[in-house]
Design a protein around this nucleic acid. Structure first.
Lengths: 191, 191
DNA sequence: GCCATTACAAACCGATCATTCTGAAACACG
DNA sequence: CGTGTTTCAGAATGATCGGTTTGTAATGGC
């Protein structure tokens, strides 16, 4: 009953995500978004309401994937150091792009659309809780080198996690990042 | 022999740094820079050549201060874990602003002026070397929990360092960051 | 094959971007 | 107290921003 659309919503969002990722919110100009997604301005406005709406859709989709991955690995029974090591190693997927969209949103607090920063913080907090849960269980299983508080260690793991993304930006190779993870795990493990 | 300037170069750079810090390179519009620095457009162009030049001056000044602080703490004799703990704790100065200008520059690779990214990477590498030096000496003094490679641990410390800046952005309190540092140090220390 | 409906491509819009220019203001020197 | 020189404040400038409108192309139902 009407002309069929030539685009697939999720594919457009993926393409937009890629550009926001590399250029940031202000840096990804509408013209570039139009060219990179293949979606024309009119349809972009109709589908997402504008640049801010497209960014929110991209952020939401990214956080969905990101949290799904963390949840999948960090809720695997039995909770413990194995899960923590596995999820840290899996972070290298981020190196194919420009760091982590969540971190970029955190660092661009004052320029991203309203609400985006808060969503990134909320995701960050959920990730920390997942780390913490595994750590508590690991301690109960006697896996963890005693001495430090578990809450401090949980946040330390997340801090390391976030730092690894930055390392990816600064040119640190996957092999080097592996060594960072190995070093952290060997300290963490009970001897 | 001419009208005296009403500005002090370094003060202007400091003000500009503040704005670039919060808004990023593209987000800091020239009008905002003019208002925030108090320097008028004409003089800004005469003194710095333009927006990009002002950013470079700001980055250079910031990295100068940053590296000076790292060098000062991390070259204190005797090299060892004390220095490492001291410098990690001192990082909290960053929370008064919006994270670390160096990290912001890394995450905005594609939008900052040419050369800026490379300068940030170079600074990052010097910081890692400083960490590594202290760690080697700490190991020689028997301070370090054996087991992991020193190069992996060195990069781990820097990763933690960078992650702490991100934590500051996400609203983590100084007290929580202190606990992260305490946890890391207690793992690192020989038992 | 015509019509209603929707997406398409591209022209158009005021606002604002970084940059340049213009003319008045403020000093040091003769 | 002029005069030369530099800074100052703010008005142009062309380009480009995000957003809107317009006319054309492509479909399903009749």
């Amino acid at each position: 009953m009407a002309r069929p659309r030539l685009y697939v919503r999720d594919e457009v969002i993926d393409k937009a995500m890629e550009l926001f990722w590399r250029q940031g919110y202000e840096g990804a100009h509408l013209q570039a978004l139009v060219e990179h997604t293949g979606l024309n301005r009119f349809s972009l406005y109709k589908e997402f309401g504008g640049k801010a709406g497209l960014f929110e859709a991209a952020l939401e989709r990214f956080l969905g994937f990101l949290l799904a991955q963390y949840r999948q690995v960090l809720t695997q029974a039995p909770l413990g150091l194995e899960n923590i090591e596995a999820v840290l190693k899996s972070l290298q997927y981020g190196s194919q792009y420009y760091g982590c969209f969540m971190l970029n949103t955190l660092t661009q607090k004052d320029t991203v659309p309203p609400g985006a920063f808060e969503k990134a913080v909320a995701a960050s907090e959920e990730i920390e809780a997942l780390y913490h849960g595994n750590l508590v269980n690991a301690a109960a299983r006697g896996q963890v080198n005693a001495g430090a508080s578990l809450s401090g260690l949980g946040k330390m793991l997340q801090t390391l996690d976030q730092g690894l993304h930055i390392q990816g930006l600064a040119g640190t190779s996957d092999a080097q990042k592996d060594r960072v993870i190995a070093a952290a795990m060997s300290l963490l493990r009970a001897t």
